[in-house]
Measured scan of single mutants.
Amino acid sequence: DELEKRVKKIARKLNLSLDQVEEWLKRNNNDELVEAVKRLKKK
């Protein structure tokens, strides 16, 4: 979905793993995208 695409884009842009992106999003209080990261990690 759109949020998952955004997460992947962030990960690529910042050259981070999904775990690192998740931490980064949590620090930025971006719950919506944190949920998207969790969905991606399950895939």
Rank of each mutant, 00 (worst) to 15 (best):
D31K: 12
K5M: 14
W24P: 00
R27N: 11
K8V: 14
L3V: 05
Q20T: 03
K5P: 02
S17N: 10
N28P: 01
E32D: 12
K9E: 15
K41P: 01
K43I: 07
K41A: 04
K9Y: 14
N29P: 05
L18I: 06
R6D: 03
Q20G: 07
K38N: 06
D19Y: 06
A11L: 14
N30P: 04
D1M: 10
E32L: 11
V21I: 12
N28K: 11
A36C: 07
E23C: 15
N28W: 14
L40Y: 04
K8C: 15
E35W: 04
A11Y: 03
K43V: 06
L3H: 07
V37C: 15
N30F: 15
L33S: 01
N30W: 15
E23P: 00
R6E: 13
E22S: 04
E35C: 13
N29G: 15
R6V: 14
N29L: 09
I10C: 15
W24A: 01
A11D: 00
R12W: 10
E4C: 13
R39K: 07
K41T: 03
R39G: 04
K26R: 13
V34F: 08
K5G: 08
D19F: 05
K43N: 06
L33W: 05
D31I: 14
Q20K: 06
E22P: 01
K43A: 08
W24C: 12
K41L: 12
V7M: 05
E32V: 10
E22H: 08
L18K: 02
R6G: 02
L3Q: 11
E23A: 11
R27Q: 13
V21A: 03
K13N: 10
K42G: 07
K9Q: 14
K38W: 02
W24T: 00
E2M: 11
D19N: 08
Q20L: 07
N28C: 15
V21K: 00
A36M: 05
N15T: 04
K43D: 04
V37W: 05
K42V: 09
E22C: 15
S17C: 12
L14V: 01
V7I: 11
E4K: 05
E35K: 09
E35D: 08
K43P: 03
K26S: 10
N15G: 15
N30D: 11
D31H: 14
A36R: 03
V34I: 12
K38F: 00
L40R: 02
K5Y: 12
N29K: 12
V37E: 01
K9P: 01
N29M: 11
E32M: 09
R6Q: 14
R12P: 00
K38R: 14
L14K: 03
K42L: 09
E35R: 07
D31G: 08
V7C: 06
W24N: 00
K38V: 07
L25D: 00
E35S: 06
A11Q: 12
I10D: 00
V21D: 00
K41F: 07
E22R: 06
N30C: 15
L40T: 02
N29R: 11
E2Q: 09
L33R: 02
L16Q: 02
K13C: 15
R39C: 11
K9F: 13
L14H: 08
R6S: 07
N29Y: 10
K9L: 14
E2G: 07
K41M: 09
L18G: 00
L40V: 05
V37F: 03
K5I: 13
K5A: 14
E2A: 12
V37N: 01
I10L: 13
D31N: 12
Q20I: 04
N29W: 09
E23S: 08
K26I: 12
L14W: 11
R12G: 04
D1R: 11
R6W: 15
E32N: 07
V34Q: 07
K5Q: 14
E35I: 06
L18V: 03
K26T: 10
K5S: 12
V21Y: 03
L14P: 00
K42Y: 06
K43Q: 07
E4F: 07
N28L: 13
K13Q: 13
E32I: 09
D1T: 10
W24F: 12
R39M: 05
L16S: 01
N29H: 13
L40P: 00
D31A: 13
V34D: 04
E32R: 09
A11K: 03
S17L: 07
K5H: 11
D31Q: 14
N28Q: 12
E22V: 09
L16T: 01
W24Y: 13
K9V: 12
K26P: 00
L16K: 04
W24H: 03
L18W: 10
A11E: 00
D1L: 13
A36P: 00
Q20R: 06
V34Y: 10
L16N: 01
E4V: 08
K43W: 12
N15Y: 07
N29I: 07
N30L: 15
D1K: 11
N30V: 12
D31C: 15
S17E: 04
K8L: 15
E23F: 07
E32T: 08
N29Q: 10
K42F: 05
K26V: 10
R39P: 01
E32F: 08
N15D: 05
L25H: 00
K38Q: 11
L14A: 02
A36K: 02
L18M: 05
L33G: 02
S17P: 05
E2N: 08
K8N: 08
S17K: 05
R39D: 02
S17R: 06
K5E: 15
S17T: 13
Q20C: 14
V37P: 01
K26G: 06
E4W: 10
Q20N: 03
A36H: 03
R27H: 10
N28F: 13
L16D: 00
R6Y: 14
E4L: 08
E2D: 12
V7G: 01
V37T: 05
N28Y: 13
V21Q: 00
K43E: 06
E23V: 07
K8G: 07
D31P: 14
V37H: 02
A36F: 05
E2V: 12
K42P: 02
R39L: 05
E32H: 09
V7L: 09
E2Y: 12
V37M: 04
W24K: 00
E23K: 09
K42E: 11
E35H: 05
E35Y: 02
K42I: 08
K42C: 15
K13I: 15
L40N: 01
E23N: 08
W24Q: 00
V7Y: 03
K8I: 15
L33K: 01
A11C: 15
V37A: 09
V7D: 01
K26Y: 07
N29A: 13
L33V: 02
R12T: 07
R27A: 13
R12F: 09
E23Q: 10
N15M: 10
R6K: 11
E32Q: 10
K41G: 02
L3M: 12
D1N: 10
N28G: 13
K42H: 08
E23G: 05
L25P: 00
K9R: 14
D1Y: 10
V21G: 00
N30A: 14
D31E: 12
A36N: 01
R27S: 10
A36L: 07
L18A: 03
V21C: 06
L18C: 11
E22I: 14
E23Y: 09
N28E: 08
D19Q: 07
I10H: 01
E22T: 04
L25W: 03
L33M: 08
D1E: 12
K26F: 08
K9N: 14
R12S: 09
E35L: 09
S17V: 04
K13D: 14
K5W: 14
L25K: 01
K5V: 12
N29D: 08
K8A: 14
E2P: 10
E32Y: 09
K8E: 13
K41D: 01
E23L: 07
L3C: 14
Q20Y: 04
R27K: 12
E35N: 08
R6C: 15
K13F: 14
I10M: 08
R6A: 13
R39Q: 07
K13W: 14
R12N: 07
L3Y: 10
A11V: 06
L16E: 01
L3E: 08
D31F: 14
K5C: 15
L18F: 07
Q20F: 04
K42Q: 13
R12D: 08
L14F: 13
D19P: 04
K42S: 11
K13G: 06
W24M: 08
K8W: 15
L18Q: 02
R39H: 04
K5D: 13
L3N: 09
N15K: 12
A11S: 05
K41N: 03
E4R: 07
K43H: 08
D19K: 07
S17H: 04
L40M: 09
Q20V: 04
K41E: 03
K38P: 01
A11H: 02
A36D: 01
A11I: 13
K38L: 05
E22A: 07
L40G: 01
S17F: 08
V34M: 12
D1H: 11
N15E: 06
K41C: 10
D31V: 13
L40D: 01
A11R: 06
L25M: 06
W24G: 00
K8S: 09
K41H: 03
L25G: 08
I10R: 03
L33D: 01
D1P: 07
L14E: 01
L33H: 02
D1F: 10
K8H: 11
K13R: 14
